[in-house]
Design a protein around this nucleic acid. Structure first.
Lengths: 107, 107
DNA sequence: TCAACCCATAGCCAACGGGGTATGGATTGT
DNA sequence: ACAATCCATACCCCGTTGGCTATGGGTTGA
């Protein structure tokens, strides 16, 4: 129901965006030009994707003269981790219930 | 680069599909009819989404007479967890490198 | 056997989204 | 001052996709 998760999943669903985010995680802060050089798409497209990543809270930008430096904001992944944990918990609880049922049936 | 992650992200990016998967995690095995009743979309749409979830390995189907029971396959989320861990590791390594640099500069 | 039911597939349409080029604002260097 | 550079925005195009209805195959019950 939380809208944050929706934004995260939608944002990371695109391969180009995920690749940009991965590079920022691996290699740290990068300028738009440096990212464009190996992105396989045009500079405006890179800028647009970075804008979407920024809006999702996954990256941060820092202006320095005429270039913009982007860096990953790892904390933004927390809702995603929470979601997977939640799903695992539901699963576990249902498993426990089944186990209880089997125990009661065993008696 | 792994294609599995791409499939997972794309599959879970849709709110309707994610809601179906969540219900299966929370409430366990359900028939298509039961899922359709509260999905807010038509039965064919539910079937299509379940097909996509199945293709992604996120659900399993079991035929019983004229109805089909679907259940969540939690293990399929593993690549997603791996990906987030990997991103966190990259982040941590870079942080360690920075720390080392600062230590050397301190001497 | 025939009607009713459950589900999947097919076909269609509208909306979204990711790609491109063109352009302009801002900054740097000459 | 002027040219070049870096980035963001605007605009358009087209493929993808998520929704619908219609339909058919398979199963159950009368």
């Amino acid at each position: 129901m939380s809208d944050t998760q929706d934004v995260l999943f939608r944002t990371l669903a695109d391969p180009t965006r995920r690749a940009l985010f991965e590079r920022l995680c691996r290699e740290g802060e990068k300028t738009v030009g440096a990212l464009t050089a190996r992105a396989g798409v045009s500079q405006p497209v890179v800028s647009k994707h970075l804008g979407i990543l920024k809006q999702a809270g996954l990256v941060r930008d820092r202006h320095e003269g005429r270039q913009t430096h982007y860096s990953a904001q790892l904390g933004a992944l927390a809702p995603l981790v929470d979601w997977t944990s939640e799903m695992a918990d539901f699963w576990q609880n249902r498993f426990d219930q089944l186990e209880d049922l089997l125990k009661r049936m065993d008696q």
